[in-house]
Simulated assay, not measured.
Amino acid sequence: MTDKAAYVKSQGQTRKHHCHWPGCEKQVPPAMWGCSTHWFKLPAALRSKIWATYRPGQEVNGTPSTAYVEVAKEVQMWIKEQP
């Protein structure tokens, strides 16, 4: 397991934070993008982009990278295009 993966898995529910899938209210630790159901609905390429641009601690200090924000927008656009 990578250091990044270990970090994410060790993070708990430190504050109210729901899955980023539109309409999903499932609470997930802030270090996670979303619930497992919606995470795995994303294509592997998008999940890889999220993972590559995520920096441990960005959810704590509220400063995701520009690259992460761009990927997050790309993911939301992909979701909106789904039937």
Rank of each mutant, 00 (worst) to 15 (best):
T2Q: 06
T2H: 11
T2A: 07
K4Q: 11
A5T: 11
A5N: 13
A6P: 05
Y7G: 07
Y7H: 14
Y7D: 04
V8F: 11
V8L: 13
K9P: 03
K9W: 15
K9N: 13
S10Y: 14
S10C: 12
Q11V: 14
Q11Y: 10
G12C: 05
G12A: 05
Q13V: 14
T14H: 11
T14N: 08
T14Q: 10
T14F: 13
T14D: 09
R15W: 12
K16W: 14
K16Q: 13
H17E: 06
H17A: 08
H17F: 15
H18Y: 11
C19G: 05
H20Q: 15
H20R: 15
H20P: 06
W21A: 02
P22L: 10
P22H: 07
C24F: 04
C24A: 10
C24S: 05
E25S: 14
E25A: 13
E25G: 14
K26H: 11
K26Y: 08
K26N: 07
K26V: 08
K26R: 12
Q27L: 15
V28Q: 03
V28H: 04
P29Q: 07
P29A: 08
P30K: 06
P30Q: 03
A31H: 01
A31Y: 01
A31T: 01
M32S: 09
M32G: 02
M32W: 15
M32P: 04
W33H: 01
G34P: 01
C35I: 04
S36E: 11
S36L: 07
S36P: 02
S36H: 09
T37Y: 12
T37Q: 09
T37C: 07
W39E: 04
W39D: 03
W39M: 07
F40Y: 15
K41G: 02
K41M: 15
L42G: 04
P43V: 03
A45Q: 01
L46W: 00
R47H: 10
R47V: 07
R47M: 09
S48A: 12
K49D: 01
K49A: 03
I50C: 04
I50E: 02
I50Y: 03
I50M: 10
W51A: 12
W51I: 10
A52D: 12
T53P: 02
T53H: 13
T53D: 06
Y54T: 09
Y54D: 06
Y54A: 09
R55G: 09
P56D: 01
P56C: 01
G57W: 02
G57E: 02
Q58G: 05
Q58W: 13
E59Q: 14
E59W: 12
V60T: 04
N61G: 03
N61A: 02
N61K: 06
N61C: 07
G62E: 06
G62D: 08
G62P: 07
T63F: 11
T63C: 09
T63G: 03
T63A: 09
P64T: 01
T66A: 12
T66V: 15
T66I: 15
A67D: 09
A67T: 10
Y68E: 04
Y68A: 05
V69A: 11
V69I: 15
E70C: 11
E70A: 13
V71C: 00
K73Y: 06
K73E: 03
V75E: 00
Q76H: 07
Q76L: 12
M77C: 03
M77G: 01
M77V: 10
M77I: 08
M77S: 04
W78C: 00
W78Q: 00
I79Q: 00
I79C: 00
K80T: 08
E81A: 14
E81Y: 12
Q82H: 06
P83G: 10
P83I: 03
P83T: 04
